[in-house]
Amino acid sequence: MEVPGWFTSEFFEKALRREKGAEDISVKLKDVSRTVNAGTNYSSTLYRVTLVVSGSREVSLVVKTPPSLRFLKEHVVREGVFQKEAKMYREILPSMRQVALERGSGLLSEPLAAGAYDSPRRHAVIMDDLAAQGMSTVDQRRGLDHAHCLVSLRALARFHALSAAVLEQSPGSLDDYLEGYFVPERRDEVKACLDAGFAEMASLVETWHGFEDFAPRLRVVGGAVCDVVIRSRDVGALELPVLTHGEFWAGNLMFGYRADSGKVCKARFVDFQSCRLGSPVLDLHCFLTTSPCDAVRAQGTGDLLKAYHEEMCRAMRTVGCGHRVITLDQLRRDVEDSALYSLLVACTFLNMVLAEPGDLDHLTEENLGPAVDRTRSNPAYRERVQKLLLALSDDGLL
């Protein structure tokens, strides 16, 4: 395992001193390991760092650094992804928590994410280790059972409601998270990119027996998908704009469990690289397309939307935004009207979600193409996409 050369006792000592405002803190770097297996995360590199603080106390932190793939690293540096994520941890999430404390007694008894430190390095995010606090992940390929889905969506509802309150209280405070890609001025450029992606998907789908007729439809769906996303990111036109997580799925969640029963009771978010202002339905589609297990999916997701809506309404009223609550029927219509977004999720990263262990190990620019092809030949991916295509066709959307 290659460890960044700047991972030193002095670096982490500086971070802790800045955070605590205490120059007498001493830090010794004890151990460094990867937090996830190779191939599990490809948009960044995550390390778990064990420190000995002031001679005796051990502290476990997670450090997020740019990805190893050159083109991805160039993207996150160019777009200031890590700075925006650091701002989420250091400014936006604390402001949400402050709103909850001031207006919503009992609304946020648990934080929505890990605490973060003032990193001395521009392209690095330093966070508390949630695993050391008893939180754990789930097997993303198996998906979440009903209880985990409910806990996740209720947490998402609180996140959305608190962001709406922050927007109302300080309208310009979230401007860094305005959409810059899916905008009308760039529609032709974005459509061309989506057309290329859906053309690749069509070439795969036409090799599936009984699904050949979907290939020509996929080749012309890019414009419609583009318009759905542009509409869902148009903050000025939305009835209820919120800060969306952007990649809200099981792999970006950690869970806590009751000591007495072992039942899941809380969820915390990780990975705020893709936060954007927009409609809450984007996070809902991302989650519902990627994360429920087969049993939950077979039962339908109506009760999950209802649970999300109930918690959203409760949270909005608690923080003084009850006048902006939308009805459950309106939420369902918004979800239906934006259903093509689920196709974009399936085209862009559902294959990564369902990838078999080893499929994405040790990615390089040279082996990326074959690795992605392996994930798309996965039977689980084929089955999931086939069901989605049939559902969109039955609804007259494809």
Rank of each mutant, 00 (worst) to 15 (best):
E168C: 04
L107H: 03
R317G: 11
T40R: 13
I25D: 05
F255H: 05
A298N: 02
V228R: 08
V36W: 15
S109R: 11
S56H: 12
V229N: 07
A161S: 08
L360C: 03
A164K: 04
S26A: 15
S261E: 08
H362S: 10
Q83V: 08
L340P: 03
M254I: 04
I230T: 01
R97V: 01
F349G: 10
T45A: 12
R154W: 06
V225K: 01
R17P: 13
V281P: 05
D234I: 06
P171D: 05
F211N: 10
G278T: 09
A391E: 15
G236Q: 02
E2R: 03
T289Q: 14
Q299I: 01
E74Y: 05
L368G: 08
D195I: 08
V32F: 08
K87A: 14
R317V: 07
S342N: 09
C286F: 15
S119W: 08
A161G: 06
R314N: 07
V76C: 06
V319Q: 02
A147P: 00
I92R: 00
L388A: 09
E336H: 07
D373G: 09
F12C: 08
V52N: 13
S9M: 03
T290C: 14
A22W: 14
G106T: 00
S203E: 14
L253P: 13
E179F: 02
A192P: 14
D31S: 12
S105R: 06
K306V: 10
V264Y: 07
Y381S: 08
V59K: 10
G358Y: 11
M201E: 10
D188M: 08
E179L: 05
G369P: 10
S44C: 04
H146F: 11
M88F: 04
A202C: 12
E383R: 15
A224F: 07
Y181C: 09
G21H: 08
D373Q: 14
D359L: 02
V229H: 00
L363W: 09
Q299M: 09
L284R: 05
K73H: 10
R97T: 00
E10I: 03
R57D: 01
E200S: 12
G80W: 05
Y42F: 12
A114I: 01
S173V: 13
L304R: 04
R121D: 03
L194I: 12
L243P: 03
L51W: 09
D395W: 08
L388E: 11
Q299P: 00
L156A: 03
V190C: 11
V296P: 09
M135G: 03
E58A: 05
L153G: 03
V372E: 10
R233Q: 10
D139R: 13
S26K: 11
K20A: 15
R70Y: 13
R78T: 07
S26T: 15
G172K: 06
L392M: 05
L392K: 11
E206T: 10
